[in-house]
């Protein structure tokens, strides 16, 4: 029974990571940049949730507002910081993203101080348990699992079957050709940032359901882990990000259950990343890139 519970926990945590990894991977696929500030968008979502819970006490309303605020923030950051650098060296864009990340973290600290805020999504007692036969699973794990599966399915369908989604694929394949086909590339990039940031808000909600403590570095470590997940899956590939997210979530959950391994979780995760990249330099589902002379 414990094994099944661990597997379900792993899938649930993997779902959270997949949400964040999708943001990284979609932005990378379309804008060809590593959005280092993505993790901090999660944190902003967390604080939005905190403020709404304090004001209205309704977690669903909080989630909706968090999604709105994050989407708006993601789009604004893209317009202000990344758009002027389009066509510049990727390293310049990366450093700007790092700057944005620090900016968001320090702004949050100025507004909310560095003391952790407690965000009880399901009230002080948590959300309780669900028992199925012999299985006793925490409710938040079920919610995370169901929500992330639904979001991933919707996102896959959106990319595959809508005009905007297909335009996104076109832009990630070949920006110039997409532009010549009448696709508004700038618009698509904005939409991508919006979707990625909205997913980050969901991830923040899931994370705070799991542990209520909220600081301005909430998104930093999960951001890096999700980024690893995106790279393991093959950055730029949407199914890859989901796979990578589940993979990292599973490794982390298993490592924490196995005695003596818990402390080495970070080391194990990054070691797996290095091994995967050495065997397959572009990740599990990544496309091989031929260098042209």
């Amino acid at each position: 029974m414990e094994i099944i519970e661990t597997i379900i926990n792993g899938f649930s945590l993997g779902g959270t990571y997949a949400m964040i990894a999708l943001g990284y991977t979609m932005v990378y696929g379309i804008a060809k940049m590593l959005n280092f500030a993505h993790g901090d968008i999660i944190m902003v979502g967390g604080y939005t949730l905190y403020v709404t819970l304090a004001g209205m006490g309704n977690p669903i309303m909080g989630l909706i507002l968090a999604v709105l605020v994050c989407t708006l923030l993601g789009v604004t950051v893209e317009k202000v910081a990344y758009k002027p650098l389009r066509g510049a060296s990727p390293l310049a864009v990366l450093i700007t993203a790092i700057g944005v990340s620090y900016l968001l973290q320090s702004l949050a600290q100025i507004i909310f101080t560095s003391a952790p805020r407690m965000v009880y999504v399901g009230g002080q007692d948590g959300l309780g348990y669900v028992t199925i036969g012999d299985l006793k699973i925490q409710t938040h794990i079920i919610i995370t699992l169901v929500c992330s599966v639904v979001i991933m399915v919707v996102l896959s369908l959106f990319v595959k079957y809508t005009k905007t989604g297909r335009a996104m694929i076109a832009v990630s394949e070949d920006k110039g050709a997409a532009q010549l086909m009448g696709i508004n590339v700038n618009m698509i990039i904005t939409i991508t940032f919006a979707i990625g940031s909205a997913l980050a808000a969901f991830a923040g909600f899931f994370m705070l359901m799991k542990s209520p403590s909220l600081t301005n570095t909430l998104g930093a470590m999960p951001g890096i882990k999700a980024f690893t997940a995106a790279v393991i899956g093959g950055i730029g590939s949407i199914p890859g990000a989901m796979l990578g997210g589940l993979f990292i979530g599973m490794i982390e959950t298993v490592a924490q259950v196995v005695p003596g391994m818990g402390a080495y979780t970070i080391a194990i995760e990054f070691l797996v990343l290095i091994i995967v990249l050495l065997v397959r330099p572009t990740g599990i589902l990544g496309k091989k890139r031929r260098e042209k002379v």
Binding site: A81, P84, L85, A92, I98, G99, Y102, L103, S106, S114
Partner: peptide, 26 residues
């Protein structure tokens, strides 16, 4: 709590300098 002002200023300087030095439009 004021210590964080420094990070804020660094972040702003970093963003402004990188954009100024690299933006193709500028």
């Amino acid at each position: 709590e004021l210590a964080v002002m420094q990070d804020l200023v660094y972040a702003l300087i970093l963003i402004v300098i990188v954009i100024y030095n690299n933006a193709p439009g500028l």
